[in-house]
Amino acid sequence: MPDLAVGKKRFIQPNMCFTNLTNQDKSTLSQSDNCFFSEALSEDYSPILPGLPDDVAEYCLALVPRSNFPAMGGVCKRWRSFIQSKAFTTVRKLAGMLEEWLYFLTTDCEEKESHWEVVDCLGRKCRSLPPMPGPGKAGFGVVVLNGKLLVMAGYSALEGTASASAEVHQYDSCLNRYGFLKHST
């Protein structure tokens, strides 16, 4: 079939110009093919969703509501590192999926220990955070950086003697998890 052969020839280049024409106005839909193939070549590369270019897969994950993130962080290492990354926040912002949660520090009924609680943007109580690691502290400082809650210093009273603490704990709000921030001595 000579027609088919001619047809094929004609079609090879037009595709290239399609790409040229449309890249200009792509915002959320980006040039997936390029990055897909270059990344696929490196050896220990694992895609976020097999069979999909990463930028497309990232968009899919960004559309999942936030309360699912801790579970998603347990799927594989690639997902875990992506969910912890700043890039994930950026994609969710682009997709209009950022959810504001309010964290507040409160005491339990006996007013002995303090713990964190979370409410979502509609004021519904979601859950309590896991207890902060280490002995119960007072007088610590709190700051939020890139979606991570930093609990710094303070003092703890053990058996009547108060001792100052130089520890910094970092709470990852996406993965619902505390970690230590290492400091040099």
Partner: peptide, 25 residues
């Protein structure tokens, strides 16, 4: 993309791995 996000939502990690063919590393 929303349909795929719905697959992930409220599912166990095992289900998600199985559905998308993701290896647990």
């Amino acid at each position: 993309a929303t349909a795929i996000a719905n697959v992930i939502q409220n599912k166990s990690v095992e289900f998600v791995r199985d559905f998308f063919g993701i290896v647990n590393d």
